[in-house]
Design a protein around this nucleic acid. Structure first.
Lengths: 211, 211
DNA sequence: GTCTATAGTTGGATAGAC
DNA sequence: GTCTATCCAACTATAGAC
């Protein structure tokens, strides 16, 4: 099938890039990296394959740009919230729930399924594809939040805090990837949303850290 | 490149199927479903593509068989352990840590990275591929364990228990998929293994359920 | 900056010999 | 039951017109 794309020559470059990133975000989220083709992305964006390669150079680079656009503002919000907590605490201890909230809220709160799921792909797609991206986008987060959590748990074993942080990441990934909706359970169960979901996750994680 | 497979005509069928399942298990675990090709699987197994299609019919069916071989015995062990706990408890309440152990141990304890990671793919690969498999293999597990957990938490809100079970699944997936190893954190941190890992996960989850 | 057209590769699946 | 050879579709990426 010849796709017959409207040949809008004068289309704005920034607009085309955004359209591609929007489509890539949705499709990578739904189907993963290997399961998504450049054709599917460009068709969803209403542009040609060549336009995508002109703007991003390769499928790998498109993934990196897509992940970056999703993750960077989330991490910025995390750092800002944590910095505010540290400033307010002065020399005293940090509040555990507040630190967990600073970590979880920016990720869970984002509107749009795709926006959250594509970030979760960072932890579920094949290693060779995402290992560099994970290091780039998540290394600083770990290095900032693990010590902060230790400071919120006076007298705790640093190695235990590091492990519990890894388990916290497991909770976060599961929640933001929308798995709460899809696990089969036939009993009565309503998936919480928004503020409820954030509070439930903070509650669960905080108890784990204090155990 | 012509693969030049040794043409062992008299090779045993069961052996070939096992070799294919072994290879598929490892590759699906490492690369996911879309990221794994039939050629890669058959080459790793030392058989031809046709042999795989003869035995399984399609790539989809190979995935279903691979997942089934991994997950069924794990779930059997879960059910046996839970049944034993219920029998021992009689009419009294169940012990939360023991129920969580019955759920987590069979999955975490399995030897072999691939064996565990391929099960985790059930929760991370694209929905259209695994949704039916997830329902088939995980529906009964949820329906058995959610009530058991509620019984271990007298007076609890059933809907809260169902949510906390979903979070437990998030912990399990993260642990068995080996993500504890790969998240970047530059501080001191040793990944626990075996019994330590099971106990740490049970501890963390139990606290969440009790919170 | 965006398109059409196509190169070059690799994918899943099958036909048919043995 | 297993192979070789092959079909055809779909893939990423690029060349070149506009």
């Amino acid at each position: 099938m010849a796709t017959a794309i409207t040949p809008l020559r004068g289309r704005d470059a920034a607009d085309t890039k955004d359209r591609l990133l929007d489509a890539a975000e949705r499709l990578f989220a739904e189907r993963g990296f290997s399961g998504t083709t450049m054709r599917a992305v460009t068709q969803a964006a209403g542009v040609s394959v060549s336009a995508a390669n002109y703007h991003f150079g390769s499928k790998d680079a498109l993934l990196a740009a897509t992940i970056g656009r999703v993750v960077v503002p989330v991490n910025q919000a995390r750092f800002e919230r944590l910095a505010a907590l540290e400033q307010a605490a002065g020399d005293g201890p940090l509040d555990l729930e507040e630190v967990l909230d600073a970590f979880l809220r920016p990720a869970i709160e984002k509107r749009g399924e795709a926006f959250r799921q594509v970030a979760a792909r960072l932890f579920s797609d094949p290693p060779e594809v995402v290992v560099a991206l994970k290091k780039e986008h998540f290394g600083d987060v770990s290095d900032r939040f693990v010590p902060a959590l230790a400071r919120a748990l006076p007298g705790s074993d640093p190695s235990r805090v590091a492990l519990d942080f890894q388990l916290l990441v497991g909770l976060m990934v599961h929640v933001i990837s929308g798995q709460l909706d899809t696990n089969p359970y036939s009993g009565p169960y309503r998936v919480p949303e928004g503020e409820d979901l954030i509070r439930s996750t903070v509650r669960y994680a905080a108890a784990g850290f204090r155990s």
